[in-house]
Design a protein around this nucleic acid. Structure first.
Length: 480
RNA sequence: GGCGGCUUGGCCAAGUGGUAAGGCAGAGGCCUGCAAAGCCUUUAUCUCCGGUUCAAAUCCGGAAGCCGCCUCCA
């Protein structure tokens, strides 16, 4: 089975054939660290985390680079507003990025370089472009000349002459073509700077990714990713710079994730509907966020709403409910290797092989859950070795799938305990009273006084407490 | 003005030309002292109009509606 990936460059799904068999080199554009991360950042990071996890599950050796843009106009502006150094800003938000992404169970990349660590490489790439006549220096700025690259526009499917017609573009008389972009910017007084052949300045935005990707992955590498908005101009410009500088193909497969709307509206600062990851995690379980993000295909736009998050929360609980049920039968920590792949894992891989179709993959998880429940329902002897081995195969599949999605990482009993704890705090439930009432009810049940038992349950219900009688006693949860 | 995308049941959402995954909600049933959970059954002529094909949600053309990018943006 071949993995197929939608390549923005060709606009088609293509068979994924890595440069070196068994290895994957992947570069993904990370955040510009000038503010807290929002749910849109989370989508991009989680989508590529999924891709990384899937490659690893399929035994690829992945070198995954995700950068931080830690020098940029927005960072400098923010620093000036607060009268602090640009590093104070970038360091603060890099730390926040890690907090948020750790919470979302995102794996660290193999290397996480920062733009400011690669100034030398940028200067040498820019010099090379000037020597080849692909770039020109004016008053301490250096611009890339888009007209020298015949293939300019191949990623975004645009033609220079088409864009000029209606585009709003800044007028800069020093540019040979309005679409020429800055490789190097001269620094104004009181701005951070680095020495360069063109004077004191700092890098333009696009150059860092060209330099860092090639530094770690080589001039040509397998996958380059990021949000859809980066296709133009960022990635288009990266291609132009890199291919002009090296004369070789730059990234081979371009992957771009779609955007998030908030209640059907574009998320924007002017609308005031920006959702930060921190805020969302105050109301929802991080794994519910992942499940929400991966329940639609990564290229589709998705709508963030309380309704969709509530759904994701319910789905997550359904998964944990099953895992809890299974944990009564087999030890969830028993990592006995099941050598053969179960049918569900094969279905899951088939879904994921089709351009990382996690929505379909998640559907396979639910099919496996139903299968498991059916097996457990049909068995009269919950300890028979035949059942245990049958369960183990399905269980193993479910774990592999949930690990790929990056959910169900907690012990099921802990998950439910935590849920109760949070609800108890939020609704200030008196645990002692609840447990007293449950005990009274169970006493009544033993005495076959079902009228009394039901009365107590009705009272609990009024207190928003739901109870469930299981084989190993009565458990309860807080509704809503 | 240029480029691209989307429109699938009450809601969310997959869908590789051969007769519509999955989740939520609804209905009926099994199980349960009653519940819950779980299981079973059940709910779609795939925006509209043409065309290609033995066969189209899937391909082609057209229409309507919605959206994104072209400026910093995940």
């Amino acid at each position: 089975m071949t993995l197929r990936i939608y390549n923005t460059l060709s606009g088609k799904k293509e068979d994924f054939i890595p440069l070196v068999p068994g290895k994957v080199g992947m570069y993904v554009c990370g955040p510009t660290v000038y503010d807290s991360c929002h749910i849109g950042h989370a989508r991009s990071v989680v989508v590529f985390d999924l891709i990384l996890r899937y490659f690893e599950k399929r035994d690829f050796d992945v070198t995954y680079i995700r950068n931080f843009t830690d020098i940029d106009d927005k960072i400098i502006n923010r620093a000036n507003e607060l009268a602090v150094g640009y590093k104070d800003i970038s360091e603060k938000y890099i730390a926040e990025f890690y907090e948020d992404m750790d919470a979302l169970n995102v794996k660290r990349a193999s290397i996480e370089p920062r733009a400011t660590e690669h100034i030398k490489g940028m200067i040498s790439l820019i010099s090379g472009l000037i020597n080849k006549g692909k770039a020109y220096a004016v008053d301490g700025d250096v611009f890339f000349s888009v007209e020298t690259f015949g293939e300019y526009g191949k990623l975004s499917g645009r033609q220079l002459q088409d864009m000029e017609a209606g585009a709003r573009i800044d007028v800069d008389d020093r540019k040979k073509n309005p679409f020429d972009f800055a490789l190097w910017k001269s620094s104004k007084p009181h701005e951070p700077y680095w020495e360069s052949p063109w004077g004191k300045g700092r890098p333009g935005w696009h150059i860092e990714c060209s330099v860092m990707s090639s530094a770690f992955l080589g001039d040509t590498f397998d996958i380059h990713g990021g949000g859809k908005d980066l296709i133009f101009p960022h990635h288009e410009n990266e291609i132009a710079q890199s291919e002009c500088a090296t004369g070789k193909k730059y990234a081979r497969y371009w992957i771009h994730n779609g955007f998030i709307n908030i209640n059907q509206e574009k998320m924007s600062k002017s609308l005031g509907n920006f959702k930060t990851i921190k805020d969302i995690l105050k109301s929802y379980h991080p794994e519910a966020v992942r499940l929400f993000l991966l329940s639609s295909h990564y290229r589709s736009p998705i709508d963030f709403s309380d309704q969709s998050m509530d759904e994701a929360t319910l789905n997550l609980e359904k998964i944990y409910t099953l895992l809890k049920r299974v944990s009564d039968i087999i030890d969830p920590l028993d990592k006995t290797e099941v050598t053969e792949s179960g049918a569900h894992w094969i279905d899951f891989c088939e879904a994921m092989d089709d351009d990382f179709n996690s929505a379909k993959g998640i559907a396979v998880i639910f099919e496996a859950i139903r299968h498991m429940n059916r097996v457990l329902d049909d068995s009269s002897d919950q300890t028979s070795s035949q059942l245990v081995s049958q369960v183990a195969v399905i269980y193993r599949d479910i774990i592999r799938m949930t690990q790929t999605i990056g959910i169900a990482a907690e012990r099921p009993d802990e998950f439910f305990k935590k849920k109760i704890r949070l609800a108890v705090e939020e609704k200030s439930v008196d645990v002692a009273v609840v447990e007293r009432m449950i005990k009274d009810r169970n006493d009544a049940r033993k005495a076959k006084d079902f009228t009394a038992a039901d009365r107590i349950r009705d009272e609990l219900q009024k207190m928003n407490i739901e109870i469930k009688d299981g084989p190993s006693g009565t458990t309860w949860s807080v509704a809503g």
